[in-house]
């Protein structure tokens, strides 16, 4: 596996080209192009603000200050995960014509989707950070954020590696069981509600099952993102719980190993099965 990873390095040009292709195709024929990556979170912010602070729906967000930021702080990392897993699941099957004709390390397909989505996510995150800085007393926000910024640089790789592990596994298994591409949406929906994105997580709310709840690495990852971008229950930016970070880092590594091993085992026969 180490050799395989090393040989990937030779193909970094192709990886970048694949990722660029993903982005290009995504914004092809749109007037604003990649500005959509910036515009999307702004529009979401506006919609959420209208929905949850002005409209009668605001009762749903009762007790959560700055609900739009609260929501986006969890939604954006989730969207990265979601889009990458969904995109990767069909990445091998959908590129059958290419796979049958030329050799390149097949994992470049899901990885390039993750990279393209990461670029997108980074742009969205920049917009969110601007909102975060503007959502309270600027100086306190700025100092708080400045302090926690390095943690973000740990958190992003954890999210990336975990997402990649799931994606590699889904992409390779889908070659043999096309059912996966149909069921993946439902699984992701269950996972979405098992992750504290739209609602406020409170350690006591699941009683004895709290531990099981936290076994979902996305729960740990999203809570950590929220600590930095939204803050604790009082909307004060805070250091994430180290348990969450440590657990999600371990879970991400295991998931990646598992996903990559499955992928490598199945990869040599992709050209026959797609």
């Amino acid at each position: 596996m180490v050799d395989q990873l090393k040989s990937l390095f030779k193909y970094k040009e192709l990886l970048l080209n694949f990722a660029k292709k993903e982005l290009k195709v995504k914004y092809k024929n749109s007037v604003l192009g990649f500005f959509w990556s910036l515009l999307n979170p702004i529009l979401m912010m506006i919609v959420f603000t209208v929905l949850f602070t002005v409209s009668p729906l605001r009762v749903a967000a009762k007790g959560i200050d700055n609900f739009p930021i609260f929501f986006l702080a969890g939604l954006l990392p989730w969207n990265f995960f979601n889009a990458t897993v969904v995109g990767s699941t069909t990445s091998i099957v959908g590129n059958g014509a290419l796979i049958k004709k030329v050799y390149f390390p097949r994992e470049l397909l899901p990885i390039s989707i993750a990279v393209a989505n990461l670029v997108n996510f980074a742009l969205e995150l920049l917009v969110l950070i601007v909102f975060v800085l503007g959502s309270g007393l600027f100086l306190t926000r700025f100092l708080g954020f400045y302090k926690f910024l390095p943690i973000l640089l740990v958190l992003l790789p954890i999210l990336f590696v975990f997402t990649l592990g799931v994606s590699l596994m889904a992409a390779s298994l889908n070659v043999y069981f096309r059912d996966i591409q149909h069921i993946i949406g439902i699984i992701l929906m269950v996972l979405f509600y098992s992750t504290p994105i739209i609602y406020k997580f409170n350690p006591g709310m699941f009683g004895k099952f709290g531990i099981i709840y936290m076994l979902n690495p996305m729960a740990d990852i999203v809570l950590s993102f929220k600590s930095i971008l939204y803050g604790n229950a009082d909307n004060v930016l805070a250091v994430p719980n180290w348990h969450y970070m440590a657990y999600s880092a371990a879970a991400a590594s295991i998931m990646f190993l598992l996903g990559y091993i499955v992928f490598i085992r199945l990869e040599p026969d992709f050209a026959e099965e797609v």
């Binding site: 030779k10 193909y11 040009e13 080209n17 030329v102």
Partner: peptide, 9 residues
């Protein structure tokens, strides 16, 4: 460019 990079350029 895509094709060329597949061939390792």
């Amino acid at each position: 460019f895509l094709n060329g990079s597949i061939l390792g350029l």
